[in-house]
Design a protein around this nucleic acid. Structure first.
Lengths: 111, 111
DNA sequence: GCTCTCCGTCTACATTGTAGGCCCTATGGG
DNA sequence: CCCATAGGGCCTACAATGTAGACGGAGAGC
């Protein structure tokens, strides 16, 4: 099977947010997690289109399931990483980690 | 000196390569370091234009100095990170590190 | 002079990043 | 009923980044 596409930074972050959220990973939850953890705003459009693109690349899979929240059981679109998604994420993070090695002095501790 | 621009992944890698190379950081040396460390090919054009864009954003500074290699003392364009460059790099790495926290289980050790 | 290697620039196009608006479906008051 | 509101998702459009390859000049060595 083909090579893993290389990811942009936002894509990486979105993938990580999906992992964090876990079972309840639908659009808004992902966005909320991402903003909370990274401290950086992300518009809804940005998140959704990135999710779409990741799914097209086969790194995410989405399924419609009924929601579980108190109000509105309308179905939501839940996302999960595919094996390729996990692999691509790992490889992206690894690359950065490799480049980072040896720069601890120059960069200090990352908060 | 407004806010720091947010960096793309390749930009981050290039900045780290510049740090690694240190005093002798001109185009080809940067490219070589980057390819060696990351194991990923990068065309000359890609590297140079990224260096240019980083300089435009004030994250790198370049100066022409005479080369030191055995052959050809023609001047080369050497790059260094500005304080903003270091800050932007740190903040980019920090963001990813923050998102990574808690995913060690899902992702395993990064080689 | 001619060719080769080194270094840098330029053009051009693909992929990602980012914001914002549109739209639908429920719900809950008036 | 009808309207306002909220939650979710989709679409468009445009800016910024990523990426490759061709072009060009300036010494080195023949």
């Amino acid at each position: 099977m083909g090579k893993l596409p290389s990811l942009g930074e936002f894509e990486v972050i979105v993938l990580m947010a999906v992992l964090h959220v876990g079972d309840e990973a639908f659009g808004s939850a992902i966005r909320d997690d991402l903003e909370a953890r990274s401290g950086r705003p992300a518009s809804r459009g940005a998140v959704y289109i990135t999710l779409d693109r990741l799914e097209e690349k086969g790194l995410l899979r989405s399924t419609l399931r009924d929601g579980t929240s108190a109000r509105g059981l309308r179905p939501r679109r839940y996302f999960t990483l595919t094996p390729d998604g996990t692999a691509a994420l790992r490889s992206s993070l690894t690359l950065v980690a490799r480049m980072h090695r040896g720069l601890e002095g120059a960069l200090g501790k990352l908060a």
